[in-house]
């Protein structure tokens, strides 16, 4: 089973984690000013790179904190030192 590096607990089995999607998606400064299309882009549209991808992960069965990590979508490997 794959190990995911939690910045606080260290490496733990993937079953202890929940996936939180793409990282660094900023909440709009003025949501009310967005068109429906712009809002849909914020809510639903995500990058789908082939290669390193910055993601949010939640260590739900451990320290119960969210963190950010970079994972290579081709190999599933987490980039060393990318968890924070």
């Amino acid at each position: 089973m794959q190990l995911i590096p939690c910045p606080w607990c260290g490496p733990r089995e993937q079953t202890e984690f929940h996936y939180g999607g793409q990282a660094d998606v900023a909440y709009p400064d003025d949501p009310a000013a967005l068109t429906d299309e712009q809002w849909a882009h914020f809510v639903f549209f995500r990058d789908n790179p082939k290669g390193p991808f910055a993601e949010r992960w939640f260590h739900s069965a451990g320290c119960r904190t969210w963190f950010r990590a970079v994972r290579d979508t081709r190999t599933y490997a987490f980039l060393p030192g990318s968890s924070a």
């Binding site: 607990c9 089995e13 202890e16 069965a61 320290c63």
Partner: peptide, 10 residues
């Protein structure tokens, strides 16, 4: 001490 999984339970 550590919170973790034992079988299916936290």
């Amino acid at each position: 001490c550590a919170r973790t999984l034992l079988g299916q339970s936290g």
